[in-house]
Design a protein around this nucleic acid. Structure first.
Length: 348
DNA sequence: AAGACGTGGCC
DNA sequence: TGGCCAAGTCT
């Protein structure tokens, strides 16, 4: 009786089916000695946290063409990086991206450390990303455990222990399968398997290189795994956004505090977001409430944003925020919820 | 150590 | 429409 799954079978599959991704060195090139750029591996891994490949691609291209090395990025202005990240979400990633780049530049001579523990000590790098960079960039035998790997392990072992409680056990399963040979390709192979074959719904078991050794395939339970703890339902909150235009075309914007929701991002001044938000106009003006509302769903609540607009004279001073000249204003620098409010005001 | 933290695509 | 899900981390 063979082991339940075997790294070799997966690597053979990966050699034939590896996805082509902008940040990836193909297994063929890797075999010829091509090494991935640790900066690009790290950048892609941060962007891919809880984010789809499709959403990441254009951001990855723009970051790597604008900031070629980690030292370039370390020298960037905070506001430029936050603006470039706008729309990708989880903005703490962008703040930590800069902190990490600056730590690598100042404490590691501009080179990412080829060491799991040292990587783990850097801002924004947790257990998954430390293992991913160590394995993919440096071909060290570290075990990556992301959502894909959890799903694959739950199925291979037909383990119905609910997540997140099952995480330590699934990690043990994954570690036991990690090979000493080609750990970087293997890490990418398991995640590719989870992303393309061993998918959450309708897994393509007929195409799976691990089918023969998969306990869930044998039991017919693959599609029901992994089990997960029930989610809490999202409450709905209300809010008011104030879109102020000065007669010269300038917009009144406000930089949000570094911590908390949309931390460090540019946005419209507004009320609190709650069951009954209090009016909080940022400037004395005659307000016009727009018809409709900007709707947006965050991780843990739904938001219905009322948008109020006003036109103010040159000399009027705001109590909050600062005017940004029309030619300096880029709606693309706003987080999506703020851009939705802008679109509503533009009649889009 | 649960909860905070974005967004877009899919069904 | 609304819930689920996506290469998690931080507090």
């Amino acid at each position: 009786m063979r082991e339940i799954a075997d790294a070799k079978d997966l690597l053979d599959w990966y050699d034939r089916h590896a996805r082509v991704l902008p940040w990836r060195v193909s297994p063929q090139d890797r075999a010829r000695g091509v090494r991935p750029d640790p900066y690009r591996v790290w950048l892609s891994e941060i962007m891919l946290q809880q984010t789809t490949v499709a959403a990441v691609k254009s951001y990855y291209e723009s970051f790597t063409s604008r900031w070629t090395t980690v030292s370039d990025l370390a020298a960037a202005r905070d506001e430029d990086v936050m603006a470039a990240w706008a729309g990708l979400g989880y903005y703490a990633r962008a703040r930590n991206l800069l902190k990490c780049a600056r730590a690598v530049a100042s404490e590691h001579g501009g080179q990412f450390p080829a060491d799991h523990a040292a990587l783990l000590g850097l801002p924004g790098i947790g257990p998954y990303t430390a293992a991913a960079v160590a394995a993919i960039a440096f071909d060290l035998p570290e075990t990556v455990v992301d959502g894909n790997v959890e799903r694959v392990m739950a199925r291979v072992h037909n383990d119905d222990t609910p997540l997140p409680r099952a995480k330590p056990v699934f990690t043990d399963y994954a570690r036991a399968l990690t090979p000493r040979d080609r750990p970087g390709d293997y890490a990418q192979a398991v995640m590719d398997l989870g992303a393309t074959i061993c998918t959450p719904r309708k897994p393509a078991c007929g195409l799976c290189p691990w089918r023969k050794g998969c306990a869930a395939w044998l039991a017919g339970t693959a599609a029901e795994l992994p089990k997960k703890a029930p989610k809490q339902r999202k409450p709905t909150r209300l809010g008011i956004a104030y879109l102020v235009r000065r007669v010269d075309g300038a917009w009144l914007l406000e930089r949000r505090p570094d911590s908390g929701l949309l931390g460090g991002m540019l946005g419209w001044p507004g009320s609190d977001w709650s069951e009954s938000p209090a009016e909080a106009p940022p400037i004395r003006a005659e307000w016009k409430a727009l018809n409709g509302e900007a709707r947006h769903t965050f991780t843990h609540f739904h938001l219905r944003l009322t948008v109020k607009t006003a036109l103010v004279p040159m000399e009027r001073q705001p109590q909050r925020g600062a005017f940004v000249a029309a030619e300096d204003f880029d709606p693309g620098a706003l987080p999506t919820v703020m851009r939705k409010a802008f679109d509503l005001a533009q009649g889009k």
